Amino acid sequence: MKHLGKALVYVIVAVNIFFAGLFLFSAYSPWIINPSVHPVLSCVGLVFPIFLFINLFFLFFWLFVRPRWALIAVCSFILCIGQIRTYMPINFRTEKLPDNKIKLLSYNVMGFNMQKKHTASDPNPILKYILKKKPDIICMQEFQFTSDKKFLTEVDINKALSDYPYHTKCNVSEKGTGNWLACYSKFPIISSRIIHYKSTYNGSAIYEVEVHGEIITLINNHLESNKLTKEDKDVYVNMIKDPETQKVKNGVRYLTRKFAEASAIRALQANTIAKEIAASKHSSIIVCGDFNDTPISYAHRVIAQGLHDAFTQSGSGLGISYNQHGFYFRIDNILISKNLAAYNCTVDKSIKESDHYPIWCYIAKQK
């Protein structure tokens, strides 16, 4: 391979530069592109990991063939180091935790596994998991229950979570279909209200919670879903299983349009949440929930400006939290203000009863 012709080397160099440019563009797309103006282009952040691994391939290729050209990939990685760390951080676990820590759990419970009844002999698996993890504050999305006593009722949930004397819920669906957000806390919830923005099904809620004598602002989010139907997901799965050229082109075009529509709506929602964060009367702020968007996205960037991403700060790996139909992304987040510190942030894959894995971490005031 060391005897590649000069012309062929330059062709490969040109291809490498092209993909390095796409890598940079995808990494910085949340700063360059407003989804409200260019919704389709805003989806380029979804393929950030693909361009990352393509450039990693070129790095090793050049190291074995023409080491000096490896500088192309090296430079692209240096320029994107912040985004790479945001997307897939590496941190060591903290064994000794601060005494003033609290444990926060955020979980899209997807209707508690079809509102399965909770009893002592046959517990609801999601409630059983929450009780086992013993968080101090729980923020839930798609919190659903029924009045039919054969299934999970609100009374059942409150009884199971009796260790949480403070709790509040709100229906964020304009259509009244019961898409609730809920917060259960061992600390007093002083106030609770919906954050109003454009959506027919999703939403956000803001709470004031008194923790160790200090009031913190806590925002629980379920941002605009991508509205992928079972048929849409089948298109994606079939495209992966049988990557025939025309099928891939049609599938990518169709799915991109759906992602783009939702991305444009999420951009406006993210702007509204960012205004709420900026207007907070309290210095300690926690923002969590299902963002329905990746760490390399306009929504994540806008909401996280001025905050730390708890997973980036104290987690490790890709932290994939959505786990269905071949769509594997970290779309669930915990963000904290800079006067707080996160420890051992974990996307917990031990429970699979929802299409999301829960995310939790310890949070303490910076000394």
Rank of each mutant, 00 (worst) to 15 (best):
S225C: 12
L181E: 09
V74E: 09
K133L: 08
L131K: 10
F61S: 05
I32E: 05
L127S: 02
R266C: 07
L340W: 07
L255W: 04
L152Y: 00
V65A: 11
Y197K: 11
I33E: 02
S350R: 05
V172S: 06
L161W: 06
N221K: 09
Q269D: 01
G82F: 15
T146E: 05
K247C: 07
K169I: 04
A205Y: 03
K352N: 14
A120N: 01
Q366I: 13
A7P: 02
T245N: 12
G326P: 03
K230F: 08
C288A: 10
K247T: 14
G315A: 04
I157R: 03
V47D: 11
V74A: 12
R85F: 13
H300Y: 15
F112A: 04
L63Y: 02
P123K: 00
K149V: 05
S225D: 07
P358D: 00
E142R: 09
Y129T: 07
N124P: 00
N34D: 14
V37E: 14
Q366Y: 06
N113V: 10
Y343G: 00
F259C: 07
W31G: 04
A310S: 10
K116E: 05
F23T: 05
G21M: 01
E244K: 15
A27I: 08
C183R: 11
V237Y: 14
Y129A: 10
T86W: 12
A364G: 06
V44R: 03
Q313S: 10
K134F: 12
G176P: 01
E174P: 05
H196C: 09
G178K: 04
